[in-house]
Computed example of a mutant assay.
Amino acid sequence: MKAPTAAINQIKALLISAPDKIRAKYRAMATSALIPALQRTRPSGHLADPEYVTLLTLRALAARCQTLGAEIEAADMALKKILDSYAPLLCDLPGVGTEVASQLLITFGDNPDRLGNEAQFASLVGVAPVPASSGKTTRHRLSRGGDRSANNALHQVVLVRMASCQRTKDYVAKRTSEGKSKREIMRCLKRYAAREIYRQITNPRPAPNNSDLRRMRSELGITITTVAGELGQWVSIISRLERGLLRNDNLASAYRQWLAGQQAPDPIR
């Protein structure tokens, strides 16, 4: 996953010093459009021509990006099949994707006999609170021990939740008003995420079935764009929730309550 990023950075850097014609055509493009556009080029000329060599190099880098992207998709599919066999419900948790679940399962699986409770798991993944009090100040700091790969996976979970999970956003706002720093808040969120993940691995609980949401919305004649606007969410988030590709119990509950409020009351007889 790091290799495509490196190739894209090379492309961006090369476009900065490319001949004017190439720079004017491609530099303003978004990455998602730039890579296919460069892949479709058919440069011709002499190797002594800077414009030809630049296009040749850009096309090679774009081809590398697409090849690596295909490899990543194949690896993700293989990892998903393994997860479906050993921990099918782990990805139901908010913010836990295939890569994160794979890393956490590796960390947990290498030490199953040593992990008797969630506190030991938190210590293993480096999110156990470490006292750092001084004088009248009582506080804890981030642990620098444990499996750093698993710690990074939990960090990604927390970042996703802080951006898309309303429950997490409310918690961040509350702790910020109490004077906690972002670093301290993230330490707490990592600990909470570790607790949820440990329980999901040792005592898995399936995500609730939200297949009724789309049916209710369709019966009321409401568009998904309207729902997204009313709930303050992206359309893609609502769509994934309806299709069972995203678990967000609070959002699903709010969505269901909102749909119930849109139903016309029975006429008075």
Rank of each mutant, 00 (worst) to 15 (best):
A7R: 05
L56F: 09
Q66P: 02
L89T: 12
S177W: 08
P129I: 10
Q66Y: 03
A264K: 09
L15H: 03
K21Y: 10
W258T: 02
R269P: 14
V127E: 04
V96D: 06
I197R: 01
A28S: 14
T226I: 04
T202K: 15
A119D: 11
V130L: 13
R191Q: 10
S44D: 04
M1D: 08
L14Y: 07
T98L: 05
N117W: 04
Y26K: 11
T202V: 15
L241H: 00
D76L: 11
P208S: 10
Q10G: 11
K12T: 12
N111G: 04
W258P: 00
A193H: 10
Q66I: 11
K136G: 09
I16S: 07
P50C: 03
E118M: 15
R40P: 01
K169C: 03
P4Q: 04
V235E: 14
A153I: 09
V158K: 04
L231P: 07
A122H: 00
Q103R: 15
T98K: 03
K169D: 08
R175Q: 13
A193I: 10
L47M: 09
S253G: 04
I238A: 02
G244F: 03
R214D: 08
A48V: 08
F121C: 08
A70L: 11
V53K: 05
A128V: 08
N151S: 14
R217D: 00
R269G: 12
L154S: 02
S143T: 01
P43D: 00
I185E: 03
T223C: 02
L246A: 00
L231G: 06
